[in-house]
């Protein structure tokens, strides 16, 4: 149970970073932390007590293994996270190019 709480704390750390930080790069790091917390949660959901990695091998039979489905899901989620992060960083670099700053309070051409 405590692992789930640690996972939740990680999620909240990410959200805090997202909401309170003013630097664009730190906000992106916050997004990444939130995503990792969710991925970690998925892995925890799939865990079975004393389970082994779900890999078949010659001359071995796996009796007690963790849920392989969530691991596949997490791989997909990681790939999606990679795409989002790369896009965000590219946009942040272009913003720096235009505004000359990473500070979100100074990037305020849009209002109203």
């Amino acid at each position: 149970m405590s692992t789930y709480f640690l996972c939740l704390i990680l999620f909240c750390v990410g959200l805090y970073c997202l909401l309170r930080k003013r630097n664009l790069i730190k906000i992106i790091i916050g997004i990444a932390i939130v995503e990792y917390a969710v991925n970690l949660f998925f892995i925890l959901v799939g865990y079975r007590m004393h389970g082994r990695a779900p890999i078949l091998h010659r001359e071995q039979e796996v009796l007690n293994m963790v849920d392989p489905l969530v691991q596949a899901l997490v791989l997909t989620a990681i790939v999606i996270g990679l795409a989002t992060t790369a896009l965000l960083i590219a946009i942040a670099i272009r913003i720096y190019d235009k505004y000359g700053t990473f500070d979100i309070t100074k990037i305020n051409k849009l209002k109203g």
Partner: peptide
């Protein structure tokens, strides 16, 4: 792309 972008700036 990221390298080229940061070189540009």
């Amino acid at each position: 792309t990221l390298v080229v972008l940061s070189k540009m700036e």
